[in-house]
Design a protein around this nucleic acid. Structure first.
Length: 291
DNA sequence: CACTTGACCTGTCCGC
DNA sequence: TGCGGACAGGTCAAGT
């Protein structure tokens, strides 16, 4: 469930805690989590310094000197935790367990031992997440990275471009289009529902059926919703603790996500839950009428 | 090409 | 109490 705001929050945490550190050892506890051969780990990873942390959509990019990069996709339950030998926890991500548990914990898949007594733990309860080692060329040619749509909080996410993408998916539910990472990068189930509610658009409306005003509203609410979530440190769930900022703050502000059966904050109508594009979907039947 | 569905996982919750 | 099944969700492969 880490979407753009959660990954951006992780990125900021890692900027403050592992940039400049050297990788001294890599412990692979569950091999499928790390897409890199033993030889690559030994020759391309060990001894390298972390020189920057980037992000593209929901993908975190750890830059190493020597032109190598670790692409981290948390998928649903992946988290990155930085801890010191003393036990101090510095940064986190979406949790499946409390990040204050001792590291490694039973969900730990890969451990990057760093200098100065620090370690970066990749934990992933459901084993869907991946850490992939690529070089500069691989960064550009990566099939996933190169196909991503624009960053929604950058100038490249224009209204005209968004409308063209909606037209391309004219016969799909608009929510399916929002979840398509080639349309716009970084939106997942939470912020799709939140953006659609704020824009007063029913999630099952066909993308090609939106009026000019509706697509303009949706373009705006995507940016507004994501920016707000980034400012609040992303959406947290039970057990999530970010040592730098405390509990991440967006969930209590959610308007429809995980609020099935509760009153809509705008009109008081009961929030309903339906299935759209294979995903659980919450919406307000009054604010977001199908017609 | 556009769009939908199932597989991948595992912890949790539900009904019997 | 225990068990089977549904559910959660991001991406990709395979299907219509």
């Amino acid at each position: 469930m880490p979407e753009l705001p959660e990954v951006e929050t992780i990125r900021r945490g890692l900027m403050a805690t592992i940039v400049g550190r050297r990788i001294e050892a890599v412990d692979v506890l569950w091999p499928p989590s790390l897409i890199a051969s033993q030889s690559q780990v030994e020759h391309l990873l060990l001894g390298k310094h972390v020189c920057g942390i980037g992000r593209r959509g929901k993908l975190l990019i750890v830059d190493l000197d020597g032109g190598e990069h670790l692409l981290v996709h948390p998928m649903m339950t992946g988290q990155l935790v930085v801890a010191e030998d003393s036990g101090t926890v510095f940064a986190g991500g979406h949790p499946s367990r409390s990040m204050l548990d001792p590291m490694p914990n039973p969900t730990t898949r890969v451990v990057f031992r760093l200098d100065e007594g620090r370690s970066l733990f990749f934990n992933d309860q459901r084993k869907f997440g991946r850490v992939t080692l690529v070089d500069d060329a691989g960064l550009g040619a990566d099939s996933f990275l190169s196909r991503l749509g624009p960053e929604p909080l950058d100038g490249g996410f224009t209204l005209d471009g968004f409308r063209r993408q909606l037209a391309r998916h004219a016969r799909a539910p608009v929510k399916a289009a929002l979840l398509d990472q080639t349309v716009v990068a970084g939106i997942g189930n939470i912020y799709a529902d939140e953006s659609l509610h704020l824009a007063r658009v029913h999630p099952r409306r066909l993308a090609g059926s939106l009026t000019a005003a509706e697509s303009r509203r949706l373009h705006q609410t995507i940016r507004k919703t994501l920016a707000s979530a980034v400012n609040h440190g992303g959406t947290s769930f039970a057990g999530y603790v970010n040592a730098a900022r405390g509990q991440a703050g967006y969930l209590v502000r959610a308007r429809v996500f995980r609020r099935t059966g509760q009153p809509c904050p705008v009109c008081g109508t009961t929030i309903e839950r339906i299935r759209v594009a294979g995903r659980g979907t919450s919406f307000c039947p009054r604010c977001q009428p199908y017609e």
